[in-house]
Computed example of a mutant assay.
Amino acid sequence: MGEAHTTGHRAGVPGEQTGATAETDTTLVVVTGLSGGGRSTVARALENVGFYVVDNLPQALLLDMAELAVKAGGAARRTAMVLDVRSRAFSTDLAEAIRELKERGYAPRVVFVDADDEVLIRRFESVRRSHPLQGDGRLADGIAVERGLLEEARDQADVIIDTSHLNVNQLRRRVEELFGGEDARRLRLTVISFGFKYGLPPDADFVMDARFLPNPYWVPELREHTGREEAVSAYVLGQEGADAFVDAYADLVNATTAGFEREGKRYLTVAVGCTGGKHRSVAIAEELAARLRRSGLAANAQHRDLGRE
């Protein structure tokens, strides 16, 4: 997909709110554009930054969905509606539906994804799909028909993203820059403690084994306490090799986060295990999360098996 052409028009550019959206604190985004242009990637990127995304919405339901989003609030306070030619209700009336939204005071931000015909043809051919509007004709015929249907909607767009020279990650980052804000684009880390006897966390990206450290279970005055308590934490972290162990994993996570973010990963799970998930893994998970936060990462500690014994 090289460089994007992103064009802002009129007063509805990202960052502004007027009419109904301002009054209700609801942000509405309408995503449309050429098939093969990258609508699905845009939709996923909007989900990543907290939008409630409705895909393949018939244009006839655009106003109804906007009204529902405003009334619902909460998780629907940021709603994106994706429209394309898969819906037979989709027609040249899309432009009129967008106009009606604006007339009702909803001030939607319209994103139009586009690409050169040659690029679209290559994309369809690479996945061996026909264009939804080509019928018995060629891919180029379907693309031409769709361009005609969407011409007025393109003219109404607040943001036009030409994806001809953008790869998936570049397109995702562009959308996140427009709609996410810095916090939404940050990689979020969960450091989770667990007990090996209960099985590995299935979503772990890294697994640390703290069983090389002496087990507080065998210290009578510590047995009934947990790694979240100062006495147990001090005992675990005071053992030979414990500090270097935490440091090594903190360095590893710090060294990889930038790469994960470039590849579009938004959540990273670091699992720390001991025998039962009560003492060593809990203390190590709390300390690792604290060190990662001090290095500027968004990290929190969770304890899957604490209290399970």
Rank of each mutant, 00 (worst) to 15 (best):
E182P: 10
M208W: 04
L213F: 06
T190F: 00
L222S: 10
R186T: 01
D205L: 05
T190S: 07
R185V: 01
T190M: 06
L187A: 10
I192K: 05
R223C: 08
G195D: 01
F196W: 12
E221W: 02
L187N: 05
F212W: 13
L213C: 12
F206M: 15
P202A: 13
T190K: 03
S193K: 02
N215M: 11
G181P: 09
S193Y: 01
P214Q: 06
Y217K: 14
F194L: 09
F196A: 12
E177H: 01
T190G: 07
E176L: 14
L222Y: 02
E224A: 14
G195R: 06
D209E: 09
P201C: 08
V219I: 15
E182D: 14
L222K: 02
I192C: 04
L189V: 15
D203V: 11
G181I: 09
F179S: 13
A184D: 12
L187P: 00
L222A: 11
R211M: 07
P202Y: 02
V219P: 08
L178N: 09
D203G: 07
L200K: 12
L187T: 08
F179Q: 09
P214L: 10
F194W: 04
G199S: 10
N215C: 13
D209F: 05
D205N: 14
P202Q: 07
R188Q: 13
D209I: 12
T190A: 06
T190W: 00
W218P: 00
A210C: 10
S193F: 02
R211W: 02
L213H: 04
V207Y: 00
R223Q: 15
S193C: 06
E224M: 10
L213K: 09
W218C: 08
L187K: 03
D183H: 00
V207G: 03
L200G: 00
F196G: 13
E182W: 02
E221A: 15
F206Y: 13
D205M: 04
I192E: 14
F179R: 09
M208C: 08
P220Y: 02
G181C: 08
T190C: 04
R211P: 15
P214A: 15
K197H: 05
N215W: 03
P202R: 05
L222T: 10
P201F: 00
V191M: 04
K197M: 07
E224T: 07
F194I: 08
D209G: 11
K197L: 12
P214N: 09
R188F: 00
G181M: 06
F179V: 13
S193I: 06
G180H: 05
R188I: 01
D183F: 01
D183Q: 12
P202C: 00
E177F: 02
L189T: 10
E224N: 15
E221T: 15
F196N: 06
P220C: 06
F196V: 08
T190Y: 00
F194N: 09
F206W: 11
A184W: 01
L200I: 13
P201S: 06
L213E: 06
F196E: 07
